[in-house]
Amino acid sequence: MSGVEGGRSAQLKHTGLRPGWTTGACATAAATAAYTALLAGDFPDPVTITLPRGQTPAFALAVEELADGTAMAGVVKDAGDDPDVTHGALIRATVRRLPAGSGVVFRAGPGVGTVTRPGLPLEVGEPAINPVPRQMMRDHIAEVAARHGDAGDVEITVSVDGGEQIARSTWNIRLGILGGLSILGTTGIVVPYSCSAWIDSIRRGVDVARAAGRTHLAGCTGATSEKTVTAEYGLPLDALLDMGDFAGAVLKYVRRHPVDRLTLCGGFAKLSKLAAGHLDLHSARSQVDLPHLAGLARAAGAGSALATAIEGANTALGALQLATADGVPLGDEVARTARDQALAVLRGAPVTLDVLCIDRAGQVVGRADPKCAIPRRER
């Protein structure tokens, strides 16, 4: 498989990282090769496709099989330098001719999921092959059909070796996509560390929850915060958003697609970053601001000695321990300030917002909601 614009070693200029290909691009290449073999008797290898933005990568075939009335080709997904769980997966497309007028019909083979809940851009019961990959495959089938004088009426069955197991590391089960992976991609290209797939999963999580009638959602930074929210509010699984570090992604999407209530729950250190105005909470992109924490401690009633100690603490947890030992509700102040920052992102959307800060054990060490009054100590 070659790289973008025909060179395998092509890299993203701004990062030096090598891009890769989406599952949708791989499925399109496999389907194109299989249909060509069905009509011409031979598989193009490598097979070149055109991506939505005009790039023309070539993909080597890992497997091929031509039988009576069907052809199958497979491509190994190369995600480039992105830590994608589907990197190295073998994506197959089996093409079978259909009666005239049937068009292009998509089926889910082994390792590709089926949609079981509303709220996704596909109807319930459809194979989890997203709209852009479907259109890419239709376009390439039409091009091959035109070259060979065929009508282009085919069934395409997409499968992923080991896809059901891989899907357990994705959002699919939570989104109601059962039986395997989704075939994804809007550009055909995986941009390393763009986190676009995670953010897209957050958006689809909101869509599915709204379609299920959920009115209270929770954005959680990890498994511990999910357990805390479940214990606090009894929310069902499809109301929990695996927010990770992307607080801004949750807030911006809920701003456009409001729900009655949104809870943000995360570790004290991560939410102290939100309180300082950071919407991406990853350690590589934002840091705990200890002077800012010291200022919040002062607002919560800390004296100068405690504030100075907090500013010199080794970690956010150390700062929290100092404040707790002195009876200063720093956790509540961080939650309140984080809530203020989140409300600014929501821009008046009709969403009731509350924030829970937890420690590593999942205990709530700070909370803020419209009814909370943060006690202050006089010094």
Rank of each mutant, 00 (worst) to 15 (best):
S2M: 12
S2Y: 14
Q11H: 12
T15H: 09
T15S: 15
G16M: 11
C26W: 04
Y35I: 08
A37G: 04
T48C: 13
I49Q: 10
R53C: 09
Q55T: 09
Q55N: 15
D68K: 07
A71M: 06
M72S: 15
G74S: 15
G74L: 07
G74V: 07
D78I: 03
G80H: 06
D81A: 05
L98R: 15
A100W: 03
G103Y: 04
V105W: 06
G111H: 01
G113Q: 02
V115I: 14
V115C: 11
R117D: 03
P121E: 04
E123S: 15
E123I: 05
I129E: 03
V132H: 14
M137R: 07
D139G: 14
G152Y: 11
V154P: 12
V154R: 07
E155V: 01
G162I: 01
R168N: 10
R168G: 13
G179H: 09
L184Q: 03
S201E: 06
R203V: 04
R204F: 02
T215S: 13
C220Q: 10
E232P: 11
L241Y: 01
L241E: 01
G244C: 02
A247G: 08
L264G: 07
L264K: 09
G266T: 06
F268A: 12
F268R: 12
S272I: 07
S272Y: 12
H282Q: 08
S283L: 10
S286D: 11
D289R: 07
P291Q: 06
G295I: 04
E311G: 15
G312I: 02
A313I: 03
N314K: 13
L317H: 13
D326E: 15
A344D: 02
V345E: 06
T352E: 10
T352K: 08
Q363K: 09
A368I: 02
D369H: 06
P370F: 07
A373W: 14
R376G: 07
E378S: 14
